[in-house]
């Protein structure tokens, strides 16, 4: 069966014809829309590498059927920076060395953006750790990631106040 799906991806309207309803949002992004920044680590919602924002919320794109996301507004790692200007979360990940191999990084960053949007972690490292626990990292960059999220959150807060 063939399905038509229209998505906004990183602010760009994408009209997609799916000849196969089995395609997940992750595979749509990676294999058909050439947005390969979003990673597939487990394909089963167990690692968080595929995290994207859908309508502002972080989700695992591997367990989302693309057909069900007709009309959704999606932001991937490629859509986070404004041109050369990195999102504060991205900049903080670099500053705090919040990655090593970089494979889980797009998911970690999108998850961190989602976490900050949710607004519940604040400056509490334990809440950041808990809130980021859906993103596995095998290299062991956890310390830098948590520092980066706390730092980015602080910067965004200051920006809002200013």
């Amino acid at each position: 069966m063939t399905l038509s799906v229209t998505l906004s991806v990183n602010g760009v309207r994408r009209d997609v014809t799916l000849e196969d309803p089995r395609v997940t949002l992750l595979d749509l992004l990676r294999e058909r829309l050439d947005l390969v920044g979003t990673k597939k680590g487990c394909d089963r919602g167990q690692c968080g590498a595929c995290t994207v924002l859908v309508d502002g919320r972080r989700i695992n794109s591997c367990l989302a059927l693309a057909a069900s996301y007709d009309g959704a507004d999606i932001v991937t790692i490629e859509g986070l920076a404004k041109g050369d200007l990195l999102d504060p979360v991205q900049a903080a990940f670099i500053a705090h060395d919040g990655f090593q191999c970089g494979f889980c990084t797009p998911g970690q960053i999108m998850s961190a953006v989602g976490l900050i949007n949710e607004g519940e972690a604040g400056d509490d490292p334990d809440r950041v750790r808990e809130g980021m626990s859906g993103n596995l990292c095998r290299c062991g960059a956890h310390a830098g990631i948590v520092e980066a999220v706390l730092d980015a959150q602080k910067q965004l807060q200051q920006r809002r106040v200013a």
Binding site: L35, V36, G37, T38, T76, I77, E78, L80, A81, L86, Q90, A91, F93, I94, A95, D97, F99, G102, T105, P106, I109
Partner: peptide, 13 residues
Amino acid sequence: TRRDGHLKVTGAA
């Protein structure tokens, strides 16, 4: 600072 950091945080690596 990691020289490939920018690539890695933008999904371009």
